[in-house]
């Protein structure tokens, strides 16, 4: 039998791959198999990874985990469903992390060393994060001031919040 790829040398490497029940056979010469090796290894890795990922995600059924994800769980920004995510192993958009937040913890615990970031923080987003945290703080103080009838303090806080909000709009 001749090699399927170069049609020149004898095929000495015979591979059979079964992915999702679909069978594919390869008959290659040694040279083409080496050259193709990377590709096959990569395809196998991708397959293994997705398989692994869906395996991990299905672990959720174990006791202690929250109930099975509803079939309708879907990212309201990009439209990707949680079901699709478990199949492709890739998110559709940055917002997916928030949309699927309730399911991510067990996954991240297994593939990463922890579930919170301790590395670099981008300068610009970092400022936004700081401003957002500051605003939340001020709003809490404002509620407290109103509840305890400290109206002068409440007015001052209200102005400060307004100023910050305007800044973040610009």
């Amino acid at each position: 039998m001749l090699c399927q790829k170069c049609h020149e040398r004898q095929a000495t490497v015979h591979l059979k791959k079964i992915i999702s029940g679909e069978e594919t056979e390869y008959h290659l010469c040694e040279q083409c198999a080496t050259e193709q090796g990377d590709f096959i290894a990569q395809a196998m890795q991708a397959f293994d990874f997705n398989h692994l990922l869906s395996g991990l995600l299905n672990m959720e059924a174990a006791p202690g985990y929250p109930a099975q994800a509803p079939a309708a769980l879907r990212c309201d920004v990009c439209g990707m469903t949680y079901q699709q995510f478990t199949q492709v192993g890739r998110f559709g958009c940055p917002h997916c992390y928030e949309s699927f937040a309730s399911r991510l913890d067990p996954l991240l615990r297994r593939i990463q060393s922890s579930t919170s970031h301790t590395g670099k923080v981008p300068r610009r987003a970092g400022e936004q994060v700081k401003r957002r945290r500051h605003l939340e703080q001020l709003r809490k103080q404002l509620n407290h001031a109103v509840a305890t009838e400290q109206y002068e303090e409440a007015a001052r806080l209200r102005d400060e919040i307004r100023q910050l909000e305007q800044m973040s709009e610009n």
Partner: peptide, 30 residues
């Protein structure tokens, strides 16, 4: 990374870090 970030805001989460298409890269993305 710093130079590019000045020009375009990145998808970044307070807790999860840099958000990536695959969960195996999230955080530092490195």
């Amino acid at each position: 990374d710093d130079a590019l970030e000045q020009q375009m805001p990145y998808a970044f989460d307070d807790n999860l870090g840099y958000l990536t298409a695959c969960p195996t890269n999230v955080g530092t993305g490195i």
